[in-house]
Design a protein around this nucleic acid. Structure first.
Lengths: 208, 208
DNA sequence: CCACCTCTGTAACATTTGTAACTGTATAAC
DNA sequence: GTTATACAGTTACAAATGTTACAGAGGTGG
């Protein structure tokens, strides 16, 4: 673990902080599809992503779900910081998009370091800022874009996150992430295929 | 100013911090309709609202606008903190919803106090958390609600912010805030009136 | 190979939202 | 008063999205 930690965070954190992190934090492996945090859960520690990617979802009272954004190597979850500092329950669900590793930092340390390490403080503020920006982007998509643009954007995001031109999801899974129905997704995908932007296959899509 | 400052913030900040605030910050009066911050502006200071309310808007590339949320007494603008810390330009527009007063805190002090005063740090984190929550709510509305629900919710928000059952806006103004057209708003408002939830008048609406 | 299940394609239709055009009415300006 | 203007009501239609239903294609396990 020390190695991955070093590789990911040694440009951000100073030596002393890295050492403290190694001491107090627990490592956690996750596999694609794992539910890492769920709605209403109490959060006792802050995750720092070492490898892999995680998708963050919001849920409606009755059934609906919506992808908010992805987090990756070097990111943390501002939502969990919110929960920890505010002692509230999780407002979101986090599902592993790929296999990966993260380390868990106890809340107490999170607070202690805020006073002690300027680099930690910067990191925490940066995380908040990034998350606010992502949320703004999500709002823009919802408010100003039609479903076909949102879908195309989704495919590009997925491709970037997974470092692959192939998106291995069923239409139904995509529909969940965009909070719409499978038929709508199939319809738009077919249109995109006709425009020559993608190629459709069973259970996966190629970007062209 | 000292009085209003005391009244609003003396339960949050300690004596020493309140004094520092009085020393370094400038007061700023605003009138309903004033543009307080606009897209792309550089932000050189953080606002703390003393009285009144401000609405925060997001703009589309081509014309569209969307109300994100309101901020009030005791709030600050997490977006401007983001800009200050990240030295970026404003992502939002802030328009005075009512007359009011705010104080402006230089960025340098904002940073200095983060190390110096725990109460300031808490305040800043709380602001971020509140804003994240508001953004989540906005996303919920956009993703999971139809226009009639969004409109009703908008009227209730407005009523709360202005402490009045009367909403003094034209249908066109409401349409801008919800990023739709005047006809749609008129149509839904008429339906709400028929259901007995509101009473329509020229240039204002009464909640029943 | 057959039975079963998942995934996709498609059609027909309903609902929601957006757009254009026109009317009447209250208010302000003259 | 008359005129001009902003605001609201309404209709008719278009476009986007959601829903239901069904058929075929492809994979899996017996």
């Amino acid at each position: 673990m020390e190695n991955t930690l070093q590789n990911t965070y040694n440009f951000i954190f100073e030596e002393a902080l890295l050492n403290e992190i190694s001491e107090v934090s627990k490592i956690h492996d996750f596999k694609e599809g794992d539910i890492i945090i769920d709605f209403g859960e109490n959060i006792k520690s802050i995750p720092l992503i070492l490898t892999g990617a995680i998708k963050i979802l919001r849920e409606d009272f009755d059934e609906g779900e919506l992808l908010l954004y992805f987090i990756e190597k070097g990111d943390t979850c501002a939502m969990s910081m919110q929960c920890c500092l505010g002692k509230a329950k999780s407002e979101i669900r986090a599902i592993a998009e790929t296999d990966g590793q993260l380390i868990l930092i106890p809340v107490a340390k999170m607070n202690e370091w805020l006073g002690k390490y300027a680099t930690w403080r910067d990191f925490v503020f940066n995380s908040y800022n990034n998350r606010l920006k992502e949320m703004l982007t999500t709002i823009d998509h919802l408010a100003f874009m039609n479903m076909d643009e949102r879908l195309l954007n989704y495919l590009l995001e997925k491709s970037k996150i997974n470092h692959s031109k192939e998106i291995h999801n069923t239409h139904q899974e995509i529909a969940y992430d965009l909070n719409t129905s499978r038929v709508v997704i199939s319809r738009i995908l077919k249109a995109l295929e006709n425009k020559g932007k993608i190629k459709l296959n069973r259970a996966y899509i190629e970007l062209l």
